[in-house]
Amino acid sequence: MFCKSITIIDDDPISIILSKKLLEKYNVLTDGIQFNSFTSPIAGLDFIKAHKNEETLNILLLDINMPEMSGFEVLNELSKLNLKNFNVFMLTSSISDSHRDTAYEYELVKKFFRKPLLEEAILEINRYLGFKE
C-alpha cells in the first residue's frame, strides 16, 4: 500500500521520462512513493477519479497545453471532486503570465513551474511530500 503518489499528466512522453529521471536522481521516488504517468489527460483524470477516496497524499504534475483537453480543463474536473490531500504543480512549457495567473486561481494549484523540472521544483515537491530538503 502506497501512502504517497506522484502523477504526471503530460502529452509529451519525453517530458514524462525526463521528469521521472530527475525525481529518481533527487531520491524523490523512493519506497512508498507510487509513480503514475499519463500522456492522455482523459486517462489521467479517469485514474484520479478512480482513486479519489484513497488516503494517499497526492502530487500531480500537470501540463497545460495538451490536445485532448487542456490542463485547465483537467483542473475544472478535479475541482468538482472534493479531493483531500491533493496538490497540483503546473509543469508546463508555457511562458504566458496569464496561464500562470489562471493556474493560481485554482485552490488545488500550489506552484507553477516551467519545464524542465528543476531542482527548485523538486525541493518544493519534496516539501509537500513531507521530506526535508
Rank of each mutant, 00 (worst) to 15 (best):
Y106F: 15
G71W: 10
V74P: 05
K49L: 07
L78D: 00
L118V: 11
L108N: 11
N58R: 15
D11M: 10
N53Q: 09
V74S: 10
I125R: 04
T56G: 05
I6P: 00
S79H: 11
L91M: 10
T102V: 00
I122T: 03
S79N: 14
L61M: 05
T30V: 09
S98Y: 12
E24I: 04
P41W: 01
V88N: 11
I48T: 07
F47N: 01
F89A: 02
I42Y: 12
S79E: 14
D10A: 04
S93A: 15
N58W: 14
F2S: 11
D11W: 03
E24C: 01
E68D: 15
K111D: 14
K52G: 13
D10L: 08
F47I: 02
K115F: 09
I64M: 06
K52A: 13
S98C: 00
E105S: 15
E68C: 14
I64T: 10
K4H: 01
L83E: 09
C3G: 07
D31Q: 15
I14S: 07
D11N: 15
F47D: 09
L75Y: 02
D12S: 12
H99D: 15
S15F: 04
L123A: 11
F38D: 12
E73P: 02
V74D: 10
N65E: 01
K84N: 12
F47K: 05
E107R: 13
F86D: 04
T39G: 06
L60E: 04
L123K: 14
R100S: 01
D10W: 09
N87Q: 13
R114W: 02
M66Y: 02
S94E: 08
K52P: 07
L57W: 02
N27E: 07
I8M: 04
N53F: 06
L117H: 04
K110M: 09
E124W: 07
N82Q: 14
N76Y: 00
K20S: 06
F89W: 03
K110F: 13
T30G: 03
N27V: 00
P67Y: 07
P13C: 10
S79L: 11
L117Q: 01
E24Q: 06
K20R: 13
M69L: 12
S40I: 04
Q34A: 12
K21L: 04
I122Y: 00
L22S: 00
T56P: 02
K52T: 07
P67L: 11
E55W: 02
K132L: 15
E105Y: 10
L62G: 07
S79W: 10
I33H: 05
L60F: 09
Q34K: 03
F112Y: 15
S79D: 14
E107T: 15
E133R: 08
K21M: 09
I17C: 03
S15D: 06
D31V: 10
T30E: 01
F113I: 08
C3W: 00
S98G: 00
L83Q: 09
F89G: 00
F72K: 15
L117M: 05
I64W: 06
N85M: 06
Y26M: 08
L62Y: 02
H99E: 11
A103D: 00
H51V: 08
N126D: 10
L22K: 01
L18A: 03
K25P: 04
F113R: 05
K20Q: 10
F38N: 12
